[in-house]
């Protein structure tokens, strides 16, 4: 309602793309690295079925599947005295998404044929070597499509960071609403930006999946 072309330009480029998007991307990158670290460590522990730790991490994964991200984020925001809204958001999103990554990597490790372990152990290769040189490279290949799908969820999940005041894309939109008060345009643009990010990744995921299937199935794949 009553927005000039110049206003559209200001909303889309100056506010959203130039000041909002960089922080969203930083959030995505930060929590991706955090989630991967948690996921890899937890996934290996669960894949090797180390007693006690395995059960604790299983409970952690269940908790993250059952408790809303919003609640976890608000909890971290209330408990943490230090740290910017950015670092709190990264921590909360990493903790939640790490649980999902952990389960994906665990599934990948368990899907590797036991014979490979036995063959490598028979050649008296130490467990870390077997794990990092033989098992994990294969797991990364098998689990890649699922991990990319999880990153799409992670990107969407960063929008909740706006609710604790992290000045990313969504929050920029909320602030811009006070000036332009046209929700359909402002939030419409944010939806489009998020869609482009996520859709590009989904497309990539599909291509990777096709490649992985071809590689895993070998000649059987047509």
């Amino acid at each position: 309602m009553g927005l000039s072309l110049h206003d559209h330009f200001t909303i889309f480029f100056t506010i959203l793309i130039k000041s909002g998007l960089p922080l969203t991307l930083k959030l995505v990158l930060g929590s991706f690295l955090g989630a991967c670290a948690i996921g890899l460590a937890g996934g290996v522990i669960r894949g090797l079925k180390i007693p006690v730790l395995d059960q604790i991490l299983g409970l952690y994964a269940q908790l993250c599947r059952g408790i809303p991200d919003m609640l976890v984020l608000l909890f971290f925001y209330a408990v943490m005295v230090y740290g910017s809204t950015y670092s709190i958001s990264v921590l909360a999103i990493s903790v939640i998404q790490g649980a999902y990554m952990q389960e994906i990597i665990k599934g990948g490790i368990l899907s590797i044929d036991k014979g490979q372990w036995e063959a490598a152990r028979a050649m008296s290769l130490p467990v870390p070597v077997v794990l990092f040189r033989i098992v994990i490279p294969q797991v990364m290949l098998i689990a890649m499509p699922a991990l990319i799908g999880q990153v799409v969820l992670l990107i969407k999940g960063t929008s909740v960071a706006s609710t604790i005041g992290c000045l990313e894309l969504t929050k920029r939109g909320v602030i811009a609403m006070a000036r332009f008060s046209n929700a359909l345009v402002v939030y419409g643009y944010i939806l489009i930006i998020f869609f482009i990010l996520c859709h590009a990744l989904t497309m990539l995921g599909r291509r990777v999946e096709r490649k992985v299937t071809r590689k895993v199935m070998g000649d059987l794949y047509e």
């Binding site: 909320v174 929700a183 359909l184 939030y187 998020f194 859709h199």
Partner: peptide, 22 residues
């Protein structure tokens, strides 16, 4: 289905809530 699966729910909620109420 493609669009709604690949955009954040929070922004969708804002979009409907502030957009439709006008």
């Amino acid at each position: 289905t493609t669009f709604f699966r690949e955009t954040p729910l929070l922004v969708q909620i804002y979009f409907w809530f502030y957009g439709l109420s006008r």
